[in-house]
Structure formats: C-alpha cells, structure tokens
Design a binder for these strands. Structure first.
Lengths: 154, 154
DNA sequence: TTATTTAAAGATAAAAACATCTTTTTTTGT
DNA sequence: ACAAAAAAAGATGTTTTTATCTTTAAATAA
C-alpha cells in the first residue's frame, strides 16, 4: 500500500510532532536511530518534506528538524501526496481503469468501504490530533518510542 | 497492496474460471488480449500458477490454459501465496514489527478491521463462488470482458 | 574569523519489480 | 514421419524503489 519511504516519512513526522517544536530540534541521526530506519535514506525524505513545507529545519549547531504548530496542521494525506503520490489510492484493487460503484470489479465492494474509511481518516485527521492521541493513549511509532512511552507512564 | 503480477494473476484465474474448462482452453495470447496485460509477462505468471496447480494447461494444438472444477476450489489467497507471498498482509501499515491490538500503531485500529474483512473474503471465497457471482451480477474483470458481459446480457 | 555542526544537493549503487526475447519440449493433425 | 501450435524454461533487459556516499552551503559558538 505505502512504500517504505512513505512509512518512514509518516513515522518521522509523528515522531517530530511528539518530540519537537521550534525550540527543540533533532538531527537526522537521532531520528533514524529512534525510528530504526536507514539514516541517509531518511535524510533524503526529510529533505523532501522540508522542501514541501511539511517539516521545518535549520542548519548549523543546535539545528535540525522539527515540526512547528503550523506544520502540525498537516495530515497524513499531505505526506502521502509528497512522497508516494496518491494515484495508488485511486486505482482499482485489481488494476482495472474503469472500476467503479457502477461497474464494480469482483472485489470492489469488499475493498471499497475499507479504502473510503482509511482515506477519510488520512485526509481529515491532523498530525496534531494524532500527536494528542498518541500522548493520551499508548500508540506506538517505533519500538524504541514505545519503550519510552511505556516507561515514562509507569 | 498487490503487485501488478498478482493483479494479472487474479484476473487471469477469474477469466479462466468464467471462460474455460477441460474442454475449452485458451492460449496466452488470447488471455493477454482480453485482459489487456503484457503477454510475455502473463505467460510467466501462468507458468507459476500451473506449476503450483492453481491452473491447468496442455501443450500443442488446441492446447492452452484452463481452470478445471477442481482448480475452481482455490481462493484468491492461494493466488497471492504463489505470486506475491503473504508477508505484506501480516505487516503493520506503518511498518512496525511489533504492532498489534495490544501495542497498536497510530493507525492500527483504522486499518485492522478492514484488513481482517478483506483477508476473510480472500481466504474463504472460492474462485467458483466468484465465478457464480460474476455470472449472476455484473462484475467486471477487464474492460473487454465487461463489454462482453454487458452485450450478452442485453 | 575559524572550526564545528548541521541540512541540502547531487551523484552513484544495489535490489526488486516489471517485462521481453530466445530456445526447448510436448502435442496433435496431416 | 513431419509441420504447426502451444506451453515450459531460461536468459536478458528495463524501470522503479531503496539506499548510500560525497560535496556544498548555512549557522553557530568560541
């Protein structure tokens, strides 16, 4: 469904939402370690997110990446748009170009409600909302982060 | 979600379920044209399906591919197992190895119920059942086949 | 001003997915 | 027996995804 690139990007943005703001930045090395993803690959992804104004960054000592309050207004859908593009989500599960409610493929009505529900969530729910939810419940965004949350709340 | 390879394979098997039996075979060329998929690529896929006993074939004049009544007892899940493997379906949507109902990732409860629903369908519903459904309703497996069904029923 | 820290940019490389081409084997009709 | 039709098998090529490496630019602190 999502590429690795996009998974890393989403997890990074949630991580930055939880851990950072304009006063508290982290560098790629740290993010890559926390999320356990390949560092140079992640660096490229963060570049893309930054170029597209989903994530903020500053160079130099004490610089790094962060998501500001404004950045937090974005959605997972915004990330997908930047990293993977959204065509995959418009396509029929069996690859038929004209598949629709009117001309359904054999799995259309199995897959379609699922897709709608997920898409609605991805389009409507902001990173801020996700961050709140992760803080209040115990959602995981990496093994390490999971441990951090577990420990800090116990 | 599914690779092109797997989409082609599923559509081929449904097509063969509808159009063929041990008395009526079709060759790769015909299947590729009907489903509008690359012929040599499809040939390789059909080879795999045949080797794994999901599809039957005979060589020589009037030979070709077909799905027997026995073949029709298989499921979409069986096709996925042969072509893509099923690991993708076990994996967390965000790629976290330990994501579960107990340790949910931020999108776990959005994605999980629908995944279950789809998997149940893929695992339980036979090709025979799909074929019946396509015959009685008007499900599409290719633009061309769609036209055929439309025309023959009008 | 200079060394250090950091992201940005660009070039390269490895692996997987997607696809094609060529040769061999089997079957069948003549 | 022979030619034709078809799948099977094997080799090859292309594109995309995933990933790394190197160089450049910017910011900061001493």
């Amino acid at each position: 469904m999502l590429s690795n690139a996009c998974k890393y990007a989403i997890r990074s943005m949630l991580y930055l939402g939880i851990q950072t703001d304009d006063k508290n930045k982290v560098n790629v090395k740290k993010i890559a370690e926390e999320l356990e993803v390949p560092q140079p690959f992640l660096a490229k992804l963060l570049q893309q997110l930054t170029k597209n104004k989903l994530v903020s960054s500053t160079k130099g000592p004490h610089g790094g990446f962060y998501v500001s309050e404004d950045d937090q207004k974005h959605t997972i859908w915004d990330i997908i748009k930047v990293i993977d593009g959204t065509t995959k989500f418009d396509e029929c599960f069996l690859g038929l170009s004209k598949c629709s409610d009117e001309n359904p493929c054999p799995v259309h009505f199995i897959v379609s409600p699922f897709k709608e529900h997920i898409l609605k969530n991805f389009r409507d729910k902001t990173i801020a909302q996700y961050v709140d939810e992760i803080a209040s419940s115990e959602k995981v965004i990496s093994l390490k982060t999971f441990d951090i949350i577990k420990n800090s709340s116990s």
